[in-house]
C-alpha cells in the first residue's frame, strides 16, 4: 500500500514539475527544473523495482544532460550587458496557444480512451509478464550464472541489440565532433552560408 502512495505522490510531483517547466520563460530556471524532474524520475524508477534504470537516469538525467544544456545556454545567450535578460525566452508571435492546445487535448483524450483496455498497473497476469519475461527469470541464473537478470539479458540474450545501441552512442559522439568539435570560425556573425567550411 505504501508503495502505491509513494508512487501516486511522486507522479503528481512529476506532473506539476512538467507544467512549471512549460510555463517558465527563464531558460536557466527551466533547465534547473529539468534536473529536478530527472531526479524525481529516478526516485520513481526505484519505487517501480527498476534500480538499474534509476541508476542510469540519476547519473544521465540529473548529471550529464543538465550540464550539457547549461553549456548550450552559455554558448547561445545574447551579448547583452544585463544578465537577467540573457536567459529570457522571447514571447513567440507566430505561435498562438489555442491550436496546439486543441491538438494536444484531442490526442490526449484519444490516448486516455485507449487505456481502458490496458491491463491494470502491477497485474501479474498481464500478457507482458507471461511470455518471454518468465523464460528470462527462470533460466537466466542457470544458463549464465549471473544473478542480475537485467545484466544477463542486456549482455547475453540481447547482446546484438546492445551492440547496436553502443554503435548509436558512438555515432552520436562522432556527429557532435563533426558539428562543434574544433574552434569557432572567426566571422561568427556571417549569414551567407559559409557555415559548413570551418574545420571539423
Amino acid at each position: 500500500m505504501i508503495d502505491i502512495l509513494i508512487n501516486i505522490t511522486l507522479l503528481a510531483f512529476l506532473a506539476i514539475t512538467s507544467v512549471a517547466i512549460v510555463r517558465l520563460t527563464n531558460l536557466f530556471a527551466t533547465i534547473m527544473l529539468f534536473g529536478i524532474f530527472s531526479l524525481l524520475s529516478a526516485g520513481l524508477f526505484v519505487v517501480m523495482d527498476a534500480p538499474d534504470v534509476a541508476f542510469t537516469e540519476a547519473a544521465v538525467g540529473a548529471g550529464i544532460s543538465t550540464v550539457l544544456m547549461l553549456a548550450t545556454l552559455a554558448l547561445t545567450k545574447g551579448q547583452k550587458k544585463s544578465h537577467e535578460e540573457d536567459y529570457e525566452e522571447k514571447p513567440s508571435r507566430a505561435h498562438r496557444p489555442w491550436l496546439p492546445l486543441a491538438v494536444v487535448g484531442i490526442t490526449g483524450a484519444a490516448l486516455v480512451y485507449g487505456t481502458w483496455d490496458i491491463p491494470g498497473f502491477g497485474d501479474p497476469d498481464a500478457p507482458a509478464q507471461t511470455h518471454v519475461a518468465r523464460y528470462y527469470i527462470e533460466n537466466a541464473m542457470p544458463e549464465t550464472g549471473v544473478p542480475n537478470i537485467v545484466t544477463a539479458v542486456l549482455a547475453s540474450y540481447r547482446g546484438f541489440d546492445t551492440l547496436g545501441e553502443v554503435a548509436v552512442v558512438f555515432t552520436a559522439g562522432v556527429a557532435v565532433l563533426l558539428l562543434i568539435g574544433g574552434k569557432r570560425p572567426k566571422s561568427s556573425t556571417s549569414l551567407k552560408g559559409d557555415g559548413g567550411q570551418d574545420e571539423t
Binding site: 548550450t72 554558448l75 552512442v169 565532433l177
Partner: peptide, 24 residues
C-alpha cells in the same frame, strides 16, 4: 562486453562535454 560498453560510453560522454566546453 560490459567493459567495452563502459569504455565507449565514458569516452563519448567526455568527447561531447569537451566539444561543448571547448566551443566557448
Amino acid at each position: 562486453v560490459e567493459l567495452g560498453v563502459g569504455i565507449t560510453v565514458a569516452a563519448v560522454m567526455l568527447i561531447i562535454y569537451f566539444a561543448f566546453a571547448g566551443r566557448g
